[in-house]
Each structure stands twice: as structure tokens, then as C-alpha cells.
Computed example of a mutant assay.
Amino acid sequence: MYKRYKHLSLIIALMIIALSLIGCTNKKTDNGDGLDNSAPNESSLSIEDDFGNKVSFDKAPERIISLAPSNTEILFALGLGDKVVGVTSYDDYPEEVLEVEKIGDFSAINLEKIIELEPDLVIIYGEGNEEENARLKEAGIPVVGFEPESIDEIIDTINKIAKITGKTAEADSLTNSMMEKRDEIVNKVKGSPKVRVFYEIWHDPLMAAGPGSFMDQLIELAGGENIAKDAQDEYPQFDLEQLVERDPEVYLTSADMPEKTPEAMMARPGFENISAIKSGQVYVLDPNIVSRPGPRIIEALEIVAEKIHPEIFK
């Protein structure tokens, strides 16, 4: 679901509503706090994004456009909802965002409308489209992109967005709460037997959440063992023979299409001998929670943990 997801371009169109993500590129390593320490006279409202773009403000932005639901959720969680003047048509949380001006979706944004809204800042997911970014910058609109791939990186993104919007105190409260809840969940499952888990990214061809994906991290933190953890990339194809051989005890996926139900999945040819199918431990999760790298990622962790270890979360 991230920068290394570009090889899934043939299925992105089908998954976009559920996954709420866009194509990506290689990510720049940050120094941990998001600051450009090489510039001693920088404004305190300064960061470097995940792709080397540096922005600095004399005062906190008053008009912000978000081009990804995850970033929108971060802005609202920081108390910046009244500053958000434009979002994509996929943005649906929190409820207040439904009243915000829509400026397109991931496949096509309305640049003219964005410029017309006169934002002080545009926040994108990933590196974005080079031509669109150039047009926005020509119009004098700063653009920053973030592509977190783990809980720690999501927290770092929250802190960076907070730093340029003057919301560092709110970010401290939010991220501390997230980390406390994460630790609480991890401690609950500590010492429990590892449960074999498969997370289905796509069904035709069958694709898994492999090593380096944040779902891989969630499974491990939740006391599971990702049966695709030794794959060659983050989102590998997984053939049926391999799936049956590794025999997951819990089968997870997200609702990327209406017809994907536990019953339909359990009726798939060849699946009948899988332990998760036999026991009925097949779960279709809310994609808006488990697929968005924002503040609700801890809620996603708890959901995954409940499915893997229901005996602990009764």
C-alpha cells in the first residue's frame, strides 16, 4: 500500500476506493524529527517532507487542502478541521469532512479548483504527480508529501504536519495516546501462542501483505505470524498451493468490493482444507480503518489483534 505498491498498478483502479491510496516512489530517509537542521535561521514552522521538499511558514497555514483521506484524518485529529478547505471525494472521516469542498479523486484532481481555493498548503500522499506538483508550486502553493509505512512513521508524519501548522501540543497528546494504546495491545498478547495469519490484498491474482507492509507489522504486533513474511517484496503474489501448504489459522482481508464476504471466500475452490476456512476464522475488515495510515492505525491494530486472539479480547 505504499511506495513499493507500484507493481500493482493493474489492480489499483479496482482497489482505490477500499484502500484509499495512490501510486508511490522511493522514499527519502528523514532524521527523526523532520527538521532541516542545516538551516539555522529557519522559521519554527519548518519541515522537510518524505521526498526532500522543504517548506517554511512565517505563520501557521490558514487554508489547507488534503489530497488523501489519511492526511485529512490527521488534520482533523489535530484540531485543524476548520482550516481544511478542500479534500478528495474519498474523504469520509470524521463526519464533518463530508461538508468540505471536493476537488477530485486520486485519478484526477481539479487543479483549477485547488488554485481557486487559494490554499496556503497542499498535503499529498506519496510523491504525487510531478506535473501537478509543478503547477501548484508555480501558483505559489507549497506542496508536501508523506508516505508512512509503519506506526512509527505515521507518528512521525503527524508530528511533521503538526509542526508546520502550529499544533505540536495537540500532536504530543495524540501520539502519546496512540503509543500508550499500542503498548497496551502488545502487552495483552505477549506470551500468547503465535497464530498463523494470511492477509489478502487482492484475490485475482491472489496477493498477500508481505514483509515491510504495515499490515505485516500489525499482524506481528497483534501476536500473529504472517505466513507471507518471507516473501520477496511487500505485496507478493501467493498461489493456492503455497497458501494451503502454509495453512493460515486466521484469514484476513478488507472489503474492497461488495461481493467479498466471509461466506464467498470460504466457498472458493481449493480453500476447503485451510484451517481458517474450517474454523470459520475468515474476516473482512473495514478498509477505511485498516488501510489508512493515519491516527486510526491503532484502532486497526486492535481489530487485527481481536481477530487473531479473540480469547484475550472478550
Rank of each mutant, 00 (worst) to 15 (best):
I74A: 12
S66Y: 08
E62N: 07
D58R: 09
A68V: 03
F57Y: 14
P69W: 02
P69E: 01
D82A: 07
L78K: 03
G81A: 02
G52H: 08
S70R: 13
F51M: 14
I74K: 03
E73Y: 03
A68C: 08
A60E: 15
S56L: 01
K54E: 11
A77Y: 13
A68T: 03
I65F: 13
I65T: 06
S66I: 00
L75V: 06
V84Y: 10
N53M: 14
L67V: 02
V84S: 05
L75N: 11
N71T: 05
F76I: 03
F51V: 07
V84A: 11
I47R: 09
G81H: 11
D82E: 07
P61M: 00
L75F: 00
E48Y: 09
F76L: 13
G79H: 10
N53K: 14
P69K: 05
S56C: 10
V85K: 02
I64V: 10
N71W: 00
F76E: 11
N53W: 03
G52T: 08
G52P: 10
I74E: 08
D82H: 05
T72N: 01
T72D: 01
R63A: 08
I47W: 14
F51D: 11
P61R: 00
D82W: 01
E48T: 15
K54I: 15
S46N: 03
S44H: 14
S70A: 05
S70D: 01
T72S: 06
I65N: 15
A77P: 11
G79D: 01
E73Q: 14
L45I: 13
V84H: 02
D50I: 15
G79L: 14
S46Y: 04
D58M: 13
D58I: 00
K59W: 07
A77C: 06
K83C: 07
D58T: 05
E62Y: 06
D82K: 14
